[in-house]
Design a binder for these strands. Sequence first.
DNA 1: CAGTGAGCGAGCTTCCGCTTGACTT
Length: 895
Amino acid sequence: MAAKQHKALVIVESPAKARKIGEYLGKDYIVLASMGHVRDLPSGAAEVPAELKKEQWATLGVNIDQQFEPVYVVPKDKKKTVKELKDALKTCSELILATDEDREGESIGWHLMKLLEPKVPVSRMVFSEITKDAIQKAIRNTRELDQNLVEAQETRRVVDRLYGYRLSPLLWKKVAPRLSAGRVQSVAVRVLVRRELERLAFRKGSYWDLKAALATASSARFDAALATVGGQRVAQGRDFDESTGRLKTDADVLLLDEAQSKALQTKLEESRDWVVSNVETRLQTRKPYPPFTTSTLQQEANRKLGLSARETMQIAQRLYENGFITYMRTDSVSLSQEAISASRACVTNRYGQEFLHPEVRQYTTKSKSAQEAHEAIRPAGVEMKTAEELSLNGREGALYAMIWKRTVATQMAEAQLRFQTVTIGTLDVEFRATGRHVEFAGFFRAYVEGSDDPEGALEDSEAALPPMEKGQQLTCKEVQALAHETKPPARYTEATLVKTLEEEGIGRPSTYASIIGTIQDRGYVRKQGNQLVPTFTAMAVTKLLEKNFSRLVDLQFTARMEQDLDDIANGQAERLPYLKSFYSGETGLDEQVKQNEAGIDPREACTLDIDGVNAKVRLGKFGAFFEGEREGQLVTATIPDDIAPADLTNELAEKLITQKSQGPQSLGIDPESGLPIFLLIGPFGPYLQLGEMKDGEKPRRVSIPKTRDVSTVKLEDALEYMKLPKTLGPHPETGKVVKAGIGMYGPYVHHDKTYKSLDKTDDILQMTMERALELLAQARVRVPVAPLKELGAHPVDGDPVQIFEGKYGPYIKHGKTNATIPKDRELDSVTIEEAVRLLDERVAKGGGSTGRRGGKKVTKKAAAKKAAASAELVTPKKAAPKKKAAKKATKKSVT
DNA sequence: CAGTGAGCGAGCTTCCGCTTGACTT
């Protein structure tokens, strides 16, 4: 008796948006969220509809013989959403598609229509800011779905699928299983690899110069740097060629070495005649930076707050969901009227009229690929409350404060700076000093990019010089000779990589963070502090792609694709000719892959020629290794995991190969057993072994802690390490023994049931009872949690079955198996029989019973299993060193 | 918890872009 109410169903993409829009539209509308895309190409064999499985193109999900017709499926995690939307539509008399106003949003709208098969009128509503006015206006001005835009999206989707799913399998065959290639990731990796090669080619250059501390009669001292000698400019870093480490041939400069600079220093120290020969002043105005987009927010949060792109997005998501900021995935720098007037009011109140920019400042997006479906990231609403006023603290507060400052600053006055360059002459030598003075702080008052503390930054920038005029006499307090070395081009960080990708139009706001995740998960990149370091695998894959698919890994590929997609969106081109030219024919992707499948030698693809290193670098199943020759024999030697490609030197290669060819080196003989002690390197790092391997019998082994420099381990210490675990003595309180040893997770002390890892600064060989007690006192005491209820013994093994309170509500525990209790279930009425049934169901479902910190391989498998979302999937036996779970499991690899 | 760069092998891996909860000591 569902008397059809005359309500309209409005579908947007995000639930937070749905809530807000629901408020503005009132009770005649039901506003729901699609949660992004609702249909997609099948992601793998498991999702391909049964009737298509036997098709050649099944796993592509695109019928390449029939006009590249895509196969669309509703992914498992979207089934629920789709059902909810269908149910809601049954009660409505109108459907309004209010997905984002961009290519992807238009497509989501179209897919929704295909899926929901509405029998009621459908319209398309768009808006770019979420205010009551804007929404009400938008709903009065609906339009039709734009089929051209939908087609452009589908073309994008198909190109990405064909690119990724044709090239990746080629990499599996030629380089290593589970690798991947893609329009975005392969270019990202290539960017990192090219920089690494520049670093590899880099040769250090060194030069000297002088620094003089000078002062006027009345001023404090200031520094000036040597500029010219005898009229010739003195060499600086930029005069050096990075690949030779020598002066560029066209550089007409004077290169000073140590002796020359020190001689000059002595000479100048005696000079009493220092005169200002020139004073130049230049005024500069600085405009505030545009408000944040996803990309600039990620860059700035990485620089200022040390957050990864992913962390930034997680925090921003929370701020957005709680209504503190506008939508965080955007490529637009435009601010709504609401935001502009709120910011201007805020500037006047907080800093005064003089700090307000006289006119409204609006920014326009430069990026060509921008789609601008949202406004810039800014504090939501009209009040412009500060983080303190909103009681935000921690990382949320810090990120919000950054957004607040950047937004408010956009409406502030320009900053006025005065730069001064003073040239000082003495003998035949010139020195130069530059000063900067902030004439008017303007927006600096609120915000200085790259600096966390505007006030402090203002003072720093006050490196002004004392007033000086031409001909003025100065006194010299000190002259120093300084050595300099040129530095290789810096590795990319998350911030600089995101910046580069955005500039090239590669990737979208919603994907910057996940790109960085993907290239790490696939083992192309490793993070070292803030640096992104490409691996040898990345080098090999990039080499293969550059050589055989140069068009596809060109930085311009995406930009060109975007132009074609624009043409399709404008109705000036069609998808089919574009897809054909990309995939089919002589020069198409299909043919290229086929040729290379036959043509590429896997052994060659896995071999790298490194400039300056005689040995070959090759990729094996267990990582990269050197292959060299000793006495006519091929010798292979593992390259340690923490060695980056640019760190390779011929010396390192020779050393490792020699070591390997000589076999295990004995550090000496253990006097007790008479056996030699070997220093060896295994998959988990260096370790010591007493005696040779005998069949069946494993010799005694002990790891060397990561904190210890292996080259300093001599027989004496080796003997000490071999004594581990050793007893330190009885615990003064319990009388039970306290031990020190090295285990899976590194060096530890142990007492009773408590284990505690040593600090980085502790040396296990120097461990004393006193320090051990200190460490044990720090150990987290495991208080056994009392069960909520005992259900009795399990019928199979007699172990107890108990109910515990967990983070997500009560659960049943038996051994290592946990099972959820259905939400609506009364705890008191759960019987042992029911509990056993729930536990069995849990086991049958798979997963869940393995401890997270258990065996490392188990953890990985469990995670891989989850990802595959397939119940009976058997994970292959081959150990994959870098996989999905790698992020969470990295800690395990520490000895 | 350990020395390799691979021998047999069914069926699997993989893309980009849009969006949240998911589930469990």
